[in-house]
Amino acid sequence: MLGILKALKTTIQAAARKPVTVQYPTEKKELPHRSRGFPVLLWDFDKDEPFCTGCQVCARYCPVDCITVTMKDNPKKAAGKSKRKKIVDHFYLDYARCMRCDICVEVCNFDAIVMNNTWEGVELSRYDRQDLVLDKDALLKQSRTGRLKDPFREPMGVAHSGWSPKVEEDEEAEETNASEEGGEG
């Protein structure tokens, strides 16, 4: 009997506290800056093209093989509007397979892919799993329409998490990739 009264005391004490839940669909909790949703591609507004050069590093390091990328020559380079020699041609990301491990973000040499840290983004409830295989346009849409204001990038750079040194120029990046892999492989 005493035990039950004691347990009741705890219950009554808690009754006076404020609720800790929110009414989800109408109210949304504020997400921390580092929040990791599904990966999305970033849009370079200065050059009016994606940051992604299609170098396939993310596809190679993805543990679940959910990324497929192809590369093409950048037409804007020929026109002299951009410094990027190569640009992404096709980019497919299977949200149904992705396990949000953040590895693609860490290995990316061009800061082209980030984890979505907003409530917005692609609708994930679909009737068919095939609909969750997103193409380049769908992945770029959020960044391009300005609904991804402040994506989280590790402040210390990728070198810090042990993956690779960051290189700004794509030529250099390709060279370092090739030499490093050749030297160790």
């Binding site: 580092r34 929040s35 491990c101």
Partner: peptide
């Protein structure tokens, strides 16, 4: 979540 960004599958230690 504030530290790693994830609520369940952190993938944070290296």
């Amino acid at each position: 979540e504030e530290i790693t960004g994830e609520r369940m599958m952190y993938n944070y230690f290296r």
